[in-house]
């Protein structure tokens, strides 16, 4: 994409229509780390949206739920349903984790697809969905890894590692490899889908600004929701898998 920007100095006008920025980041220095500021900013916005709506929804709880409360209870029911089908009977303690994953990813994806982030101009890079950045998705995937290791170890103790030689010891390398491929596939799937979505939309907008990108944007919304659901479902499935016992 950035190839388009190569002749930026000479063709500023062309840049104005077709400025597609990938790999451009606004860097902040925080304690010796370079952080991607645009991701932080959009993450904060997403977190603010989630916390604010949740606080508003549960501020005045009723026995017979009214609109906002009803909606959030529905969402909670949905998340519990997902966790229950994937984890099984002991799904209770994991509902917050799965719910956090699902809601954060979902709202991130949809904010990237629905909010006009590009109205705000940054010194470098541009605002987009937080899941558009590989760091966010890797962080989420690693959290999932930690979660399923914790789940397995706290449930079965050291005998959790017995699953590596199940069903036969020959599969030991593959089973070990699985622990690395799980977060890898989780993070790359989410990152790739969202980035591809946004790129397609941006490229189409740069080519034909009106009407044509709209179907793709709807497709993006659909994919975003599916990706959030897939991430949450897979996280729950990994947790459930590490907790299920072969007694």
């Amino acid at each position: 994409m950035n190839i388009l920007l190569c002749s930026i100095n000479t063709q500023k006008g062309l840049y104005d229509i077709s400025g597609v920025e990938v790999g451009q980041h606004l860097y902040w220095q925080i304690g010796g780390f370079q952080v991607h500021a645009q991701v932080l900013i959009t993450s904060w916005v997403v977190i603010a949206i989630l916390l604010g709506s949740a606080i508003i929804a549960v501020r005045n709880p009723q026995t017979i739920p009214t609109d906002g409360q009803n909606f959030f209870e529905y969402v909670l029911e949905f998340i519990r349903d997902v966790s229950k089908t994937q984890i099984g009977e002991e799904y209770g303690p994991w509902v917050p984790f799965i719910g956090t994953m699902f809601l954060f990813i979902f709202v991130s994806n949809w904010s990237g697809a629905l909010l006009p982030w590009k109205i705000i101009q940054l010194p470098h890079g541009e605002l987009a969905a937080p899941t558009n950045d590989i760091n966010t998705t890797v962080a989420l995937a690693l959290l999932t890894s930690v979660a399923y290791f914790y789940a397995g170890l706290s449930k079965k103790g050291l005998s959790y590692f017995g699953k590596y030689i199940q069903p036969t010891p020959i599969l030991l390398p593959i089973n070990i490899l699985e622990d690395f491929t799980k977060p890898l596939s989780l993070s790359f799937r989410l990152f790739g889908n969202i980035l591809a979505d946004e790129l397609v939309v941006v490229v189409l907008v740069s080519l034909v600004p009106l009407v044509v990108p709209i179907p793709v944007m709807f497709l993006g919304l659909f994919t975003s929701g599916i990706q959030a659901l897939i991430f949450a479902t897979l996280a729950a499935a990994y947790i459930g898998e590490s907790m299920e016992g072969h007694h």
Partner: peptide, 26 residues
């Protein structure tokens, strides 16, 4: 040396910021 935007600001280009499509989608 990025020349286009050096600080925070608002992009007023209606085609580039895509608000029409977004509002239709919304």
């Amino acid at each position: 040396y990025w020349p286009s935007a050096e600080s925070f600001g608002f992009n007023t280009d209606i085609l580039a910021t895509n608000p029409i499509n977004l509002s239709v989608v919304l």
